[in-house]
Amino acid sequence: MSIAAALGIMSGTAQGAASKPSSEVSVQVAYKCYVNSYWLCAETLDRVYQRAQPTKNSDYVVLLDKGRSVQLRCWKEGEVINGNNVWYYTATDVDYPYQTIGYVSAAYLSTGKDPEWGIGHC
């Protein structure tokens, strides 16, 4: 069962967008993660670089695989990617094989509305 299904969350479609059958609806939500459940997390929607600064021309820290869970520490405005200027300061879990920290564009994360509620500004 997906997290969204467990929480009973439904996904809407943008006005004028074609709707999908309910079996194909993709729901994006942040969720609690890590051992102490302190951080909200999201998953990467594609392979994406975690970067030193909130721009795609910044040095990269690590290449994250699609579906990788990252902790959302805070957010700030950065380079616009796919119409979204929100970048999250993220951390991988310690089992990555090592923890990394850096920025990931919200355009590549399963956050839903950006900035995600409950995540402070950096």
Rank of each mutant, 00 (worst) to 15 (best):
L40T: 06
R47Y: 02
L72S: 06
D46T: 13
A52K: 07
A30E: 07
W75C: 03
A52E: 04
R51L: 08
C74K: 06
Q99Y: 09
Y98H: 04
T100I: 04
R73N: 13
G67W: 08
V25Y: 15
Y88I: 15
W75M: 03
T92S: 02
I81H: 02
V61S: 00
S58A: 13
E77M: 03
V80A: 10
Y98A: 10
A91P: 06
V62P: 02
Q99H: 05
I81M: 13
A52T: 12
Y31G: 08
R68T: 13
S37Q: 12
W75G: 02
I101H: 08
L64Q: 02
S69G: 02
Y88L: 14
S37G: 08
I81T: 11
E77L: 03
T55S: 15
V35Y: 15
V62A: 15
A30H: 09
T90A: 11
Q53G: 12
E77D: 06
Q53Y: 02
V25L: 15
S69L: 02
P97L: 06
G83D: 06
W87N: 10
V61F: 00
V86H: 00
T55Q: 15
S26K: 15
Q71H: 09
L45V: 07
L63S: 09
Y96E: 05
E79K: 09
K76A: 00
Q28P: 03
A42V: 03
V35S: 14
Y89T: 01
G67F: 12
W39Y: 13
W87A: 10
A91I: 06
E43M: 14
T55D: 11
T100V: 13
C74E: 06
L72R: 04
N84F: 04
G83K: 14
Y103E: 00
N36P: 00
Y88Q: 10
T100A: 10
N84A: 09
N36Y: 04
W75F: 06
Q53S: 12
D46Q: 11
